[in-house]
C-alpha cells in the first residue's frame, strides 16, 4: 500500500490523482452461474475504474455480493463490495468485512438496504441491527483503529476504501446534505448517489454540500442510469420510492419512436454526465446500467471518459 493511501483500491488512487472517476455496477444473477457475472464483467472491461456489486438489491435473493466480487476480481477488476445491514447483524457484518479484506477486496459500500417488504421474500425477518451510518463508522474503526464495534482489538486491519450512498432526491430535501455530513463524519471516503435525472435538484443539493465544505472531505460520484424506454422512466418515477424522474425526461423519450428510445436514453445519460462534470464537488460518475451493461462503453466514450487512466 502506498504512503498516504488508506487501501489498495484502484478507485482511491484514481480519485486521489485527481481523475474524474467512473464506476459501474454489476447485479449478480438469480442462480449459481459464474458466467453471468463474467459476461457482465466483459462488457464493463476497460470502461470503469471500479465496479460495484449489489447485495440482493431490492431485497431480491441473488448470488452473494462477495462471491461475485471475487469472480470480478479474478478478471482484473477492482470490485466495490456492497453490503446491506438489512440481512446481517454486527457479528456477520464485521466477519464479512474481515473476510472480504482477506480475499483482497479493497472497497466497500455501506448500505441499509431496501426493506424486504417489496422484495421476493416479504415473509423474511429483517435485521437492521445497525444502520448504514453506524456501519461506516464500524468499518472505519476496524481499519483505522484496529477495533471491533465492541472496542476490542482485532489482529490484521481490513484495508478498505469506505463508501456510502446518498439520495439527494429523497425527502425531506432540507436534511439530505446534513445526512451526507453525518456519513462523512462517520468516516466515508467516497459517496455514490442515487441515479440523477433531475439535474437541477441535484445541483441544489450539491451547492449545499459544497457550502458545508463536504466535497473537500469526501469524493462524490454522481449516479447515472440510462433509461431504456418511456416505460422504464415511468416505472422509476412512479414505483421506485425516492426516485425523481422529471416529466421533461419522459416527454423527451416520448418524442422519439419506441425503437429509438434506448438511444435517446443513452444520449440523455451522456449529456447528464457532461453537465455533471462541470459541477463543483463532483469527482466522478457511478453508472448503473441496470441489465444493460452493453451500453456502458458507449456512454463512457460518449462522455469523453474513455479510455480510463492507467494507474
Amino acid at each position: 500500500m502506498k504512503e498516504g493511501f488508506k487501501s489498495n483500491s484502484r478507485l482511491e488512487r484514481i480519485l486521489k490523482a485527481g481523475h474524474f472517476a467512473v464506476t459501474g455496477e454489476c447485479g449478480p444473477p438469480r442462480g449459481a452461474d459464474p458466467e453471468a457475472i463474467r459476461k457482465k464483467g466483459e462488457l464493463l472491461k476497460g470502461c470503469v475504474d471500479a465496479v460495484n456489486v449489489t447485495d440482493c438489491q431490492t431485497a431480491v435473493v441473488r448470488m452473494s455480493s462477495l462471491s461475485s466480487c471475487l469472480i470480478l476480481k479474478e478478471m482484473g477488476f477492482d470490485p466495490i463490495l456492497q453490503m446491506v445491514t438489512r440481512d446481517r447483524n454486527r457479528i456477520a457484518i464485521q466477519s464479512d468485512i474481515l473476510g472480504a479484506a482477506a480475499l483482497g477486496i479493497n472497497n466497500i459500500l455501506c448500505l441499509t438496504g431496501d426493506h424486504q417488504k417489496a422484495g421476493d421474500h416479504p415473509q423474511a425477518k429483517n435485521v437492521f441491527d445497525i444502520d448504514s451510518i453506524q456501519m461506516v463508522a464500524a468499518v472505519k474503526a476496524m481499519r483505522d483503529e484496529g477495533k471491533f464495534m465492541n472496542g476490542e482489538e482485532l489482529t490484521v486491519r481490513p484495508r478498505l476504501f469506505i463508501g456510502a450512498a446518498e439520495n439527494p432526491f429523497a425527502d425531506p430535501f432540507e436534511i439530505r446534505h446534513l445526512r451526507l455530513a453525518k456519513k462523512v463524519k462517520a468516516g466515508a471516503d467516497f459517496i455514490q448517489t442515487q441515479c440523477i435525472f433531475n439535474v437541477k435538484r441535484f445541483k441544489e443539493w450539491m451547492k449545499r454540500v459544497v457550502d458545508m465544505g463536504l466535497h473537500e472531505k469526501v469524493f462524490i460520484l454522481a449516479g447515472i442510469t440510462p433509461l431504456k424506454s418511456v416505460g422504464m422512466a415511468r416505472y422509476m418515477k412512479n414505483m421506485v420510492p425516492g426516485m425523481d424522474v422529471p416529466d421533461e425526461v419522459i416527454e423527451r423519450l416520448k418524442g422519439v419512436p419506441k425503437e429509438k428510445q434506448g438511444e435517446e436514453g443513452v444520449r440523455i445519460a451522456i449529456e447528464t454526465i457532461q453537465e455533471l462534470k462541470e459541477v463543483e464537488g463532483v469527482h466522478g460518475v457511478h453508472i448503473m446500467a441496470i441489465e444493460w451493461e452493453e451500453k456502458v462503453r458507449e456512454i463512457v466514450e460518449g462522455a469523453g471518459l474513455f479510455p480510463r487512466p492507467e494507474i
Partner: peptide, 11 residues
C-alpha cells in the same frame, strides 16, 4: 428499518 440515523433514501 428501525434506523437510528434515518431517513433512508426511500422516504
Amino acid at each position: 428499518k428501525s434506523l437510528l440515523n434515518g431517513p433512508c433514501g426511500g422516504s
